[in-house]
């Protein structure tokens, strides 16, 4: 296997671990941690593909920087949503939010 394949394998493992976290966690913050792991896997895969193949390296690195900016924006919004949910319902579990009436 070439070095690129090894990097892609680690990125895929990060994606899988993040998906596992999103599905198995019961709190909103635990799910957010899983999403951050998935975004890191995507960034690692993009930089590996840009740096180890003849494609434009600037494009891959800038794409990863943009993913980091989007992750920061997403974490801010999730912080606000968690704050509102915790204030109204007492805790930030995903099953309390999914109840329609209660």
């Amino acid at each position: 296997m070439s070095p690129l394949s090894w990097y892609q394998l680690v990125a895929a493992l990060l994606l899988g671990i993040g998906l596992y976290g999103v599905v198995s966690r019961k709190t909103l913050i635990g799910m957010l941690i899983g999403v951050e792991l998935m975004l890191n896997g995507a960034g690692l895969s993009m930089v590996a593909a840009a740096q180890l193949t003849p494609m434009d390296g600037v494009l891959g690195q800038l794409g990863t920087l943009f993913v980091m900016g989007l992750a920061a924006a997403e974490a801010t919004l999730v912080l606000a949503i968690v704050l509102v949910v915790a204030r109204r319902m007492g805790n930030a579990r995903s099953d309390t939010v999914s109840e329609l009436k209660g």
Binding site: L79, L83, A86
Partner: peptide, 15 residues
């Protein structure tokens, strides 16, 4: 930045 934000979220959500 992002992990400090998540720490704040844990603190504010009464973990």
């Amino acid at each position: 930045a992002v992990s400090v934000l998540i720490f704040f979220a844990i603190m504010l959500a009464h973990a």
